[in-house]
Simulated assay, not measured.
Amino acid sequence: MKIRLNLLIFFCLVFIMNSSLLSQERVTTFGIQIKPIIPSSLFNTGEQLLDQNNVFFSVKPKLGYSFGMVIRKGLTKTLSLETGINYLKRGYDLSIDDEDLNFNENSNFNLINYEIPVSLLVYVKLSREMYMNVSGGVSMDIYPSDLYTFSPSFQNDVIVSDWIQTSLIANVGWEYRTEESGYFYLGGSYHRPFSPIAKEIVWYNGNGRDERPIFELIGNYVTIDFRYFFHEDPEKKKRKVKKSIKTGKTK
């Protein structure tokens, strides 16, 4: 039921945007992007801590990255619609610190998923070549599998909530546009899922212990965005052809 709701939200937004803007002139460009994922305590994207019977558990996001392709369809001089597909790899550090036994163990794991974002951009022209934009929209996030790691003293199960989920996305950036060499873009993005993306169950069973803390992986993250769009000429307007009612000939 939840997957169906996510799909309905995503495709309804795409349909509304396209159906309401079909009559506007557009320029379609194709681009590539890479987005380093920056660990931060801002926007609930930082470390999670839990103390259970004097055993301290920590799950800390590490540097990650996203890369993919972008398709931008210009609607007016100030509005564009963007979509594409991205590959994401996010790293986490798991730390278990048992103070009673003076025991510490660290492990790391990577969470991989794919994203199909749809966003509406609004431009502000700063100079002949420089533009600033802000955008917002939704993303369909695809998580292909659960994750399992272990050692002699613990095991770590990461169980994704659904293999298809939806998120809110927001972006701000600056763009340098050339007439022949394309567009160069630098910005930042914020990605916020509607619900936790996964449940992490850590079972610490070493040294005679039996502790099983549970973490909700929120999935929020911030990125620095580097994009390049290839140059494309504006699409030509189609001239309407009128037919004579009497003769059926075109005018």
Rank of each mutant, 00 (worst) to 15 (best):
N53W: 08
F154Y: 15
W174C: 10
L13N: 05
K236G: 00
N156P: 02
N6A: 15
K199W: 01
K238E: 05
K73P: 00
S161E: 13
S107M: 09
D210M: 11
M140S: 05
F229I: 06
M69L: 14
G31Q: 06
I32L: 14
L22R: 12
I37T: 13
S20F: 14
F57M: 05
V222N: 06
L217D: 00
V172I: 15
M1Q: 07
L94E: 00
E115S: 15
T149H: 12
F15W: 12
I159G: 01
G68T: 04
P196R: 04
P213N: 06
K199S: 14
F150K: 12
K240I: 14
N6S: 15
E216Q: 15
F11S: 11
L63A: 05
R4D: 10
F194W: 08
F215D: 00
S244K: 09
I96C: 07
L147I: 15
L81M: 10
I37M: 10
A198N: 06
E105N: 09
K60M: 11
L42K: 06
L120C: 08
F10G: 04
I218L: 11
L63M: 07
I214M: 10
L81A: 03
G91L: 04
V59K: 02
I116F: 15
E211W: 03
S66D: 02
V160L: 08
H231D: 11
Y143L: 06
F43M: 04
C12G: 13
P117G: 08
F67M: 09
S40L: 03
M1W: 03
R128Q: 13
F230G: 06
L42T: 03
I71R: 00
N156T: 04
R72A: 04
E47D: 13
L13A: 09
D146L: 06
I38V: 15
G74M: 01
S119T: 07
D146W: 12
G68N: 03
I197G: 00
F56G: 02
Y148P: 01
N54E: 10
Q48F: 03
K237M: 08
I9S: 11
Y65T: 10
K60D: 12
S80V: 06
G187L: 10
R192P: 00
L168C: 05
R209P: 02
Q48I: 09
L168V: 11
R4K: 12
I32C: 02
K199G: 08
I159W: 00
D100W: 03
I112S: 11
Y92V: 02
V118N: 01
F57L: 03
N6M: 13
P193R: 00
D146F: 11
Y190V: 12
D141L: 13
E25F: 05
F229E: 06
L121T: 07
S151T: 11
G68H: 03
S139H: 08
Y183K: 12
S19Y: 13
R26V: 03
S145Q: 14
K199L: 11
N6T: 07
S181T: 11
Q165F: 04
N205F: 10
T76D: 04
N53Q: 14
G206L: 00
W203Y: 13
L21T: 15
